[in-house]
């Protein structure tokens, strides 16, 4: 194992080059040592290190809005994309990316997906955010208002009169028709 400048601990650095690591602390106190190019996909991290000259490599950046579970999911995605980029800097291998993304979201429950959308929004990773919101949209396609409320865990806060008005609109519902 090559000695790294940063106080990196666990992850193996198979490359001979010293890999710079950045420490990120999630809301529940866990510290992640993240390879620099991966961490820099998180726009909030990139600008934190770009804007603050007094931060050092030892600085642990707190991310109070991101849970450990969401962080695991996000890093998995960002690492995979960094790997694609490293292997094929010119053009990403589209087939492979699609296959990875499909398998990646299949394993995510609605709860995990929502958590990660909020985290990706906070961390400002536009590519991941765009991808995850697309997945969420697919999961609520052609579903009822009640289903969408339950999906997002949103409470119905309309008054009975408003509800009645909405129901009237609903009678005219402009609906998507499932192809079958």
């Amino acid at each position: 194992m090559s000695s790294s400048i940063a106080s990196s601990s666990s992850s193996s650095s198979s490359s001979s080059k010293k890999e710079k690591k950045i420490s990120l602390k999630t809301s529940d106190g866990e510290v992640f040592e993240v390879e620099e190019p991966v961490a820099m996909q998180l726009e909030i991290v990139r600008s934190f290190f770009a804007d603050n000259e007094d931060v050092t490599e030892q600085t642990v950046m707190p991310l109070p809005n991101v849970s450990t579970a969401a962080m695991h999911g996000i890093l998995e995605y960002c690492r995979a994309h960094e790997e694609f980029r490293r292997r094929m800097p010119e053009a990403a291998p589209e087939e492979e990316v699609r296959a990875f993304e499909a398998g990646y979201v299949d394993r995510k429950s609605n709860e995990e997906l929502k958590e990660m959308i909020l985290a990706a929004n906070y961390l400002n990773i536009s590519k991941l955010l765009d991808f995850l919101t697309g997945v969420a949209a697919k999961r609520i396609e052609n579903k009822s208002v009640e289903y969408v409320r339950a999906f997002f865990g949103v409470e119905n806060d309309f008054t009975p009169e408003e509800e009645a008005n909405l129901r009237r609109e609903y009678e005219w519902a402009f609906e998507g028709v499932d192809e079958d």
């Binding site: 949209a137 009822s144 409470e155």
Partner: peptide
């Protein structure tokens, strides 16, 4: 999110809360 939705779903969105 709404950019990913088809129109019927956008209308549904408007009735959630």
């Amino acid at each position: 999110i709404s950019n990913h939705l088809n129109l019927a779903d956008v209308l549904t969105f408007g009735r959630v809360c």
